[in-house]
């Protein structure tokens, strides 16, 4: 089967994911998805693995410092040169994470974003640095969700915050997904959306609360690596990957 036809078959074999939060389970299991993705060209499978690695918590957890993740993300962005929409998508995901990290750092008492180049990536770094004390970092006029996230974070409503961010990212993926139907980009966007749906299907409020308490306790206990760990989680805590090992 030639590549266009192969990708038509692959995309058609993937079930519709539906709306976010509309179902409790994923329409296709990780195992089945892995089987279907074996139809990908080897080069595309490698690119997809890289994309998932920088966008999923399980992937970035292997890095010790935020700066390493940023370097990795820059490499992925360079590797995606032939796929501008995916490049924009990964860039937008990193920017969203940078904004969330900034909100969390500000809530935790950080007084400025002077060192943002060490933990943030994308177009908004200077904007965040210049508008550190603005609730939405001066971006509220065209990204209203930032102000809403700030409000939810101050209110301590972590679940609503998670929903808001997941919705934002899901919509972002949907926007680019509308531009592609039967190509590699369509498959990659499907997988990234699947990761979000799968993440939400496994979401457990009690577990999330326990994890948060563990992190807070570790930070208060003054563990040497707690600051670094908290910093990483600030930036990359919105997704876990159920595709761990899926591409190996």
């Amino acid at each position: 089967m030639s590549r266009p036809h192969q990708y038509i078959a692959l995309v058609s074999s993937l079930p519709h994911l539906g709306k976010l939060f509309s179902r409790k389970d994923v329409p296709i299991s990780g195992f089945r998805l892995k089987q279907r993705l074996s139809m990908l060209e080897p080069a595309h499978a490698s690119l997809l693995r890289e994309m998932v690695e920088v966008t999923a918590w399980a992937g970035v957890a292997g890095f010790d410092r935020d700066i390493d993740v940023i370097r990795r993300a820059n490499k992925v962005l360079a590797d995606l040169q032939a796929y501008p929409d995916l490049q924009h998508l990964v860039g937008a995901r990193m920017e969203t994470r940078t904004l969330i990290a900034a909100l969390r750092r500000r809530r935790d008492g950080q007084e400025s974003a002077a060192d943002i180049e060490n933990w943030g990536l994308g177009r908004w770094c200077n904007q965040i640095r210049a508008n550190w004390n603005d609730p939405a970092f001066g971006l509220g006029h065209f990204m209203p969700w930032v102000g809403e996230a700030h409000r939810l974070m101050l209110a301590g409503d972590h679940i609503a915050m998670e929903r808001l961010v997941l919705t934002q990212v899901f919509d972002q993926l949907g926007h680019y997904g509308n531009l592609h139907e039967f190509d590699f980009e369509a498959v990659a966007i499907y997988v990234l959306r699947w990761v979000i749906v799968e993440r939400w299907s496994r979401y457990n409020e009690a577990d999330a609360r326990a994890r948060l308490e563990t992190l807070v306790a570790a930070a208060l206990a003054g563990k040497t690596d707690a600051g670094g760990l908290a910093g990483r989680q600030d930036l990359f805590s919105d997704f876990t990957s159920a595709l761990e090992g899926a591409f190996s």
Binding site: P4, H5, Q6, I8, A9
Partner: peptide, 12 residues
């Protein structure tokens, strides 16, 4: 083109 989509759809 149509057959490729049909084959994929049959998988699902």
């Amino acid at each position: 083109l149509g057959g490729s989509a049909a084959i994929g759809a049959m998988l699902d």
